[in-house]
């Protein structure tokens, strides 16, 4: 899932400075799971905004709602249309994709981000997340025992470890395990060490921005 964190209040308050009717729009997808922008956080942020305005003696109306998945037009539409004309600005609590999906669907509506999207990651424990996938578009986990060197090796090496690895740690930080050492041990545990003898795959690095098309899923016009 995507991992995000709320922006500092100062930044959010500055963005919404000129507006009086604010729709705080959460997402029930990834950001609910990582406790950054779900219905609960929508309530928290709305309360903080109202408390800030009250101190400044300024009016504000906060509308609170959440889409199922803010990256899906179908789930944005009903929520925004339900409250049409009741707000001046949408303060999105989804990831960057969610914010952009709203902006694309409602081009005449100003949408602001209240989160910083950090990465695609895994929950290590409740409250701790680590980056796991850089969405390289050409997954090689099948050869690396489920450990992604593109993400977890500081140099994204496909044939590590490099000479900087020492005692299982990466040279960039003593706190960072060497991904390739982990891959080695994992392959050994799985009896798959021969994978390492294969030639490193030449990767087809993606050109950004990416686009995925599935013709079988697209709408067709009946003729």
């Amino acid at each position: 899932m995507l991992i995000a964190e709320r922006k500092p209040m100062e930044e959010i308050l500055e963005m919404i400075e000129d507006f009086e009717r604010i729709l705080v729009l959460g997402c029930k997808g990834c950001v609910t799971v990582c406790c950054a922008g779900g219905p609960r956080e929508v309530k928290t942020l709305s309360t903080l905004i109202r408390m800030d305005r009250k101190q400044k003696g300024r009016k504000v109306i906060t509308l609170e709602d959440s889409t199922e998945l803010q990256c899906e037009p179908e789930s944005i539409k009903p929520v925004l249309e339900k409250m049409a004309n009741q707000y001046d600005v949408v303060l999105s609590m989804a990831c960057g994709a969610g914010v952009q999906a709203v902006a694309k669907l409602f081009p005449d509506q100003l949408v602001l981000p209240s989160l910083n999207t950090n990465f695609t990651g895994i929950a290590e424990e409740h409250g701790v997340w680590t980056e796991a996938c850089l969405a390289c578009g050409d997954c090689i986990l099948g050869r690396t025992a489920g450990i992604c060197p593109v993400t977890r090796c500081a140099k994204s090496l496909l044939n590590g470890p490099c000479g900087g690895a020492s005692e299982g740690k990466c040279e960039v930080s003593k706190d960072q395990p060497c991904a390739w050492q982990e891959i080695y041990h994992a392959l050994k545990r799985l009896n798959m060490l021969h994978y390492l003898k294969q030639k490193p795959q030449v990767k087809d690095w993606p050109v950004h921005p990416g686009r995925v098309v599935r013709e079988d899923l697209r709408e067709v016009e009946a003729t």
Binding site: M9, L13, T44, M51, D52, Q55
Partner: peptide
């Protein structure tokens, strides 16, 4: 911490 952010 949240309150400090909005000067309470």
């Amino acid at each position: 911490d949240l309150l400090s952010e909005i000067n309470i």
